[in-house]
Design a protein around this nucleic acid. Sequence first.
DNA 1: GCTCGTTTCCGAGAGGCCCTAGGATATGCC
DNA 2: GGCATATCCTAGGGCCTCTCGGAAACGAGC
Lengths: 194, 194
Amino acid sequence: MARAGLTAERVTVAGADLADEVGLDQVTMSEVARRLGVKDASLYTHVRNVEDLRGRIALLAADEKTVRIAEATAGLAGKDALVAYANAWREFAHEHPGRYMATQVPIRIDPELAAKATGPRRAVELTYSMLRAYGLAEPDLTDAVRVLRSTFHGFVALEAAGGFAHARTPQQTWARTLDALHVLLEHWPEGESV
Amino acid sequence: MARAGLTAERVTVAGADLADEVGLDQVTMSEVARRLGVKDASLYTHVRNVEDLRGRIALLAADEKTVRIAEATAGLAGKDALVAYANAWREFAHEHPGRYMATQVPIRIDPELAAKATGPRRAVELTYSMLRAYGLAEPDLTDAVRVLRSTFHGFVALEAAGGFAHARTPQQTWARTLDALHVLLEHWPEGESV
DNA sequence: GCTCGTTTCCGAGAGGCCCTAGGATATGCC
DNA sequence: GGCATATCCTAGGGCCTCTCGGAAACGAGC
């Protein structure tokens, strides 16, 4: 019998695709093996266990999302960059719900593996450079980065969970949210808070 | 043999407590049964299946969170109400991580059951009434509600996922975030966006 | 207090998923 | 071609989900 030519990479991609189709919690070793035309035991040569697989999917997704945002914001600044950044984030979440969830769910990731991944680190750096045009200094800069990331993530998470009634479309709110965040960054409160 | 006196309610509470202790995805029929001193088969009289149990946990958690916020904001207005609301939200998420996650994870909830639950509906109403002091009119009001809920949820989710490095404590960023949101509500952008 | 219908709980068991151990075979290198 | 290594599979144990049918407790009415 010919070998299937599995690698950790291929197993991870198959798992990520499965997650996008049926949900991250439905990603099982058995199903991934079936999709790859292989017995489940064969996967353990490339991936430690299910937890490890999910961690790899999370790192893969973080990389892909970062690349997507980087491409979208290349050469832009100010509000243009903010809007491009935010839209790329949201579109990634819509197109890859399973991958996206993997980036957010609290997952124990193999530290050795995480050290090699550049996605999460670059993502934060991207946000910093996008904010440069607003002229914020530390520690406000860090806080602003966190507010943006919180709002973007919170929005798509609530959207995915069906948290928005149908009266006003998410798209309308989304556009206004970006306006509001832009205004917020220009009027960032001075001084330390209580 | 005496009966155990199970009800759907008791099973749900046991599941919610378990979720807070070991994580929502570790909530199994077997473990809940063990905690209740009962065989797993006995649970199926009160709960349709695991999915149904998780849905009930979500509704229970939504109710509890709403009550918590309602108590915290009673009699307050303006920024005081905003801060009390936000802190109650975050504290609930910290103290009941499993319950909180149940409210956010996309779960198929039995429509019949959801119709009886008042939590999610009241939660949104609470946010509206808290925003009254800022004098926003529709549709800005709806958008503002969604921005606040997105930011609160996104913040605690990123916090839970370990998304904040150690340089600046989440608490510091949290306080500044509330300042920023307060300023944002007072300078809510006029007119429709592109 | 007895009977009878209803509800609750359990034993047994099928099927699926996770993971390990050890064996068989394909592959790459000499 | 022969050998060392890595890949893949068979077999199997353990835990979880869920169903079915039976037994026992409960409640109502007499």
